Simulated scan of single mutants.
Amino acid sequence: LAQSVEDAQDELVQMRNDITKRADKAKVQDAKYREMPDIVVKVVCRYRAELFFKISRKTKLSRLFNAWTDRMEKTGGKKGANPPGGDAMNGSVKSDAVPPSGPGVPSLTMQFVFTHNGRTVEADQTPEEAGMEDADEILAVELMDLTEGPGSEDWDDLVEPRRQTLKKNWTDNPREAKRTLAEIFDGVVRERLKEVLRQYELRERHFECVIRSKELEVLLSRARAAEQKQLAEGEKAHAEKRADEIQQLRKDLEDAQNGQTMLIDKLIQCCKEPNAERTQRLFASLREELERKGPRVNKTPADGVVGG
């Protein structure tokens, strides 16, 4: 809440400052307008003339535009020319002046577009509204009608379209007519045959492309089959090698078991001999130890076979 109050106070201070600045600016403009109620503006037409007009800030610009147009009609709009009365090409526009109007006054034939600082100026605006100051320049551009005038009838005659006449050439000789028809027929047949040949060549080319694509597919399938066959042969050789290793391990295991059995039998025979108690005890302990190790020896090769 405190933050919102501070923001509102800042906005109020900013608005107060803006209002103060606008009031000061308005006071300065009012003082300037009181000191200089009239301004002098320069109206320039590139192909006509340059005139200076004194006008009030509150007067509508339509009076200035009418005065400019009237001066251009009187002098013909040439640079350096003076009106019939001999006055200089400068004037003033009074606020109480009334633009010429009525049935007895001829209509203005010249038309101009007036711009100030790149913006079009309307006739119902005032210099104050348009933002004009003393010694500003107004650019006048004349609008010319190019659709009327002498010589337009000649152009109408030239623009009229003209049709080109075609000459017909008929022959009365039947042989020549027959020959002409035969040539036309031969030309048509020749073009048709050329089109058929082009279509046939295109079809043959398409057929060759199809055959080539089928051959490539067959070659690809053969390559894949050869690759799979090679992989299968490799796996088969690996399996045979593993089987040989397993057979060798089984054979070694059987030999070890047979040797162990023979050793145990010999030890038992030695133990059965008389007057050999010490030998019997020694061999009995050895037999027990071998019997304890026997199952472990049998289990180890079996695990090796399963793992292989």
Score class of each variant (00 low, 15 high):
1 L>E: 15
1 L>N: 08
2 A>C: 06
2 A>I: 09
3 Q>T: 13
6 E>M: 13
8 A>K: 15
9 Q>N: 14
12 L>H: 03
17 N>V: 05
18 D>I: 07
20 T>C: 06
20 T>E: 14
21 K>E: 08
23 A>I: 07
25 K>V: 04
27 K>E: 11
28 V>S: 15
31 A>S: 08
33 Y>R: 08
34 R>I: 00
35 E>N: 08
36 M>F: 15
37 P>C: 05
40 V>T: 15
40 V>R: 01
41 V>F: 01
42 K>G: 02
42 K>V: 02
45 C>S: 15
48 R>M: 05
49 A>D: 05
49 A>G: 03
51 L>T: 00
56 S>Q: 06
58 K>Q: 09
59 T>I: 02
62 S>W: 00
63 R>I: 04
64 L>T: 01
68 W>R: 04
71 R>A: 06
72 M>C: 03
73 E>K: 01
77 G>I: 00
79 K>E: 09
84 P>M: 00
88 A>I: 03
89 M>P: 02
89 M>Y: 06
90 N>E: 14
90 N>D: 08
91 G>M: 03
95 S>N: 10
96 D>T: 12
97 A>T: 10
97 A>V: 06
101 S>A: 14
107 S>V: 10
108 L>Y: 03
108 L>N: 02
108 L>T: 04
108 L>C: 08
109 T>P: 04
112 F>W: 03
112 F>D: 02
122 E>S: 10
124 D>G: 10
124 D>V: 09
127 P>N: 02
127 P>H: 00
129 E>D: 09
129 E>Q: 14
132 M>Y: 03
136 D>N: 00
138 I>Y: 00
139 L>F: 08
141 V>D: 00
142 E>P: 01
146 L>P: 03
147 T>S: 15
148 E>T: 13
148 E>C: 09
162 R>Y: 04
169 N>K: 09
169 N>R: 09
170 W>I: 10
170 W>Q: 06
173 N>M: 06
179 R>C: 05
183 E>K: 13
184 I>K: 14
192 R>E: 09
194 K>Q: 12
195 E>F: 03
201 E>C: 01
203 R>N: 05
205 R>N: 08
206 H>F: 05
207 F>P: 01
209 C>K: 14
209 C>L: 15
210 V>R: 07
212 R>E: 10
213 S>G: 11
220 L>D: 13
221 S>R: 15
221 S>Q: 14
224 R>W: 09
225 A>K: 15
225 A>Y: 12
226 A>T: 07
227 E>W: 05
230 Q>S: 11
231 L>R: 14
236 K>N: 12
236 K>G: 07
237 A>L: 12
238 H>K: 11
240 E>Q: 12
241 K>E: 11
241 K>T: 13
244 D>K: 15
245 E>D: 10
245 E>M: 11
248 Q>E: 12
250 R>Y: 13
251 K>G: 06
253 L>K: 05
255 D>A: 07
255 D>N: 10
262 M>H: 12
263 L>W: 11
269 Q>K: 09
273 E>R: 12
276 A>E: 07
280 Q>N: 12
281 R>L: 14
281 R>I: 10
283 F>Y: 10
284 A>T: 10
285 S>G: 14
287 R>M: 14
289 E>S: 15
290 L>V: 02
301 P>Q: 05
305 V>K: 03
